[in-house]
Simulated scan of single mutants.
Amino acid sequence: MTRIRYGAPIWQLPLLVACFTVTGWIVARLSGEATAVRMLTWFLAAVVAHDLVLYPLAATADRVLVTAAGIGGRLRPAVRRAVVNHVRVPALGAALLFLVYLPGILRLGGGAFTAATGLTQEPYLSRWLLVSSTMFAVSGLLLAARLTLRRTRRR
């Protein structure tokens, strides 16, 4: 009966109240900070960048991947899902690593980085490419092993 009135499982209400409480506490703690406006600006810019740029880009790339996996129609649906997922996971890992290390990869703020660490940002791009290609290679090997195992089990 409660679900009908509330519209969701009852455990979601206390969880939502707890989330709002923690958020309120964080806002209260940060409101006295001198950089609160700058943090809020960065947060709002990240929300806008994610919702208006990154999410549509990722959704479009995923739709292209799913469509490309379905072209030809020779793959069974289970194999097609496996292929798509073995591309999705390393692509997500590479994209997240790119976002985390974006300033280093694009060599932004090199002077401040060198002054703070005594190092250069030179290896970031090559290391990101190496880690990303390794993720795709491992995923491809796992897919090949899975498909080979599936083929031998059917025989």
Rank of each mutant, 00 (worst) to 15 (best):
R3N: 10
G72T: 08
A95L: 15
W42M: 13
G111R: 13
R38P: 00
Y55L: 15
V22T: 11
G70Y: 02
C19L: 15
H50K: 07
S139A: 15
L16I: 12
V27D: 02
Y124V: 03
W11Y: 14
L96R: 02
Y124W: 13
A34D: 13
G32R: 07
R81D: 13
T117H: 02
T134Y: 01
R29Q: 14
L141W: 12
C19W: 11
T152D: 04
T23K: 01
A82S: 15
F113W: 15
R127A: 06
V37M: 11
G32F: 05
L16G: 05
L130I: 05
G70R: 13
A36W: 12
S126Y: 01
L75T: 07
L75K: 04
L125G: 01
A8K: 11
G72A: 07
L97F: 09
V27H: 04
D51Y: 09
R38S: 14
P56A: 02
W128Q: 03
L99Q: 10
A116I: 04
I4A: 14
T134W: 05
A91E: 03
N85P: 00
E33S: 14
A28H: 11
E122C: 00
T21Q: 04
L130Y: 02
V47H: 04
I10Y: 05
V17F: 10
R29I: 06
P77K: 11
H86R: 15
R107F: 01
L44D: 03
R76P: 00
I10N: 05
V79L: 09
T23Y: 13
A34M: 03
G111W: 03
T117G: 09
M1W: 09
A8T: 12
V100I: 15
M1K: 08
V17W: 09
P123H: 08
Q12S: 10
R5V: 15
I4C: 01
L54A: 14
A94W: 02
T114N: 13
G7L: 10
S132K: 01
F136C: 04
L119C: 04
A82F: 00
A78K: 10
G111S: 13
L13Y: 07
A78Q: 11
